[in-house]
């Protein structure tokens, strides 16, 4: 996903040949579009990696850069410029999509720092008992039983108001736990953004664990919502 930023190597603009040693989208001298820079998503917006972002500013920058980079602006340009516009805009869109979402942003920054993260797109880890957060073992066990019962009842065309109420209550509880995780994450953001190296290291560790827990909880909530709504 990530390329190493090598900003020490000067790059010459393809158009005006003036060298620039930053990873940039446009030549500072002639304003021509440049091939996609190697920097991270934060650098696309001219930011250093940080977790607490001003989303209004981010959107404003996204729109400003889109106006300049989008392939619609290069429909009749040189083939090279067309290609770079496409690649640069994909980078801009990928970066914006990642950074504007607090959870994706946190995960991205942690990966950038070399943290080992859980699998993003498999919903299967909830089936693996070893991944259940220890403090939730008992409740998750019971919830899974109830979910199974609910599905069976549905299959038979029955409704069980008690079970429905139990599940609704459980969903509320797990929603609450999710909120708590999000609160904790925000707390860690501050630590990471403002702390020294040691504080950052410890915040990273905490956040990796929080994201794991969050992923687990949100899969659980999704399951309950799906079963209730089926």
């Amino acid at each position: 996903m990530l390329k190493v930023l090598d900003s020490a190597v000067p790059v010459a603009c393809w158009s005006c040949s003036v060298a620039h040693n930053e990873s940039i989208l446009f030549c500072p001298h002639c304003s021509k579009i440049q091939p996609p820079p190697g920097g991270d998503y934060f650098s696309v917006f001219g930011l250093a990696p940080r977790l607490d972002l001003d989303l209004g500013m981010l959107e404003h920058e996204f729109h400003r850069l889109s106006r300049k980079l989008h392939p619609d602006r290069f429909a009749r340009a040189l083939p090279n410029e067309k290609d770079w516009s496409l690649a640069d805009t994909a980078l801009l869109n990928d970066a914006y999509r990642t950074l504007r979402d607090p959870i994706r942003r946190t995960g991205y920054l942690l990966k950038l720092q070399g943290a080992e993260m859980g699998e993003e797109h498999s919903g299967k880890d909830r089936k693996d008992p070893s991944r259940v957060p220890a403090d939730l073992l008992e409740e998750v066990f019971e919830l899974n039983m109830q979910l199974e019962e609910m599905r069976m009842a549905r299959k038979m065309g029955q409704t069980d108001p008690d079970l429905q109420a139990d599940l609704t209550a459980a969903k509320k509880k797990f929603d609450g736990l999710l909120d708590a995780v999000d609160q904790d994450l925000r707390g860690q953001w501050k630590v990471w953004d403002e702390g020294d190296e040691a504080a950052r290291q410890s915040a990273q560790k905490t956040m990796v664990a929080l994201l794991d827990r969050r992923r687990y909880l949100s899969n659980l909530v999704r399951d309950v919502t799906e079963t209730l709504g089926a």
Binding site: L86, A87, N93, R97, S122
Partner: peptide, 14 residues
Amino acid sequence: ARIIQRNSTIPASA
């Protein structure tokens, strides 16, 4: 394995 989610602004890459 989903690599680009629906409703992602295009161009999009993975």
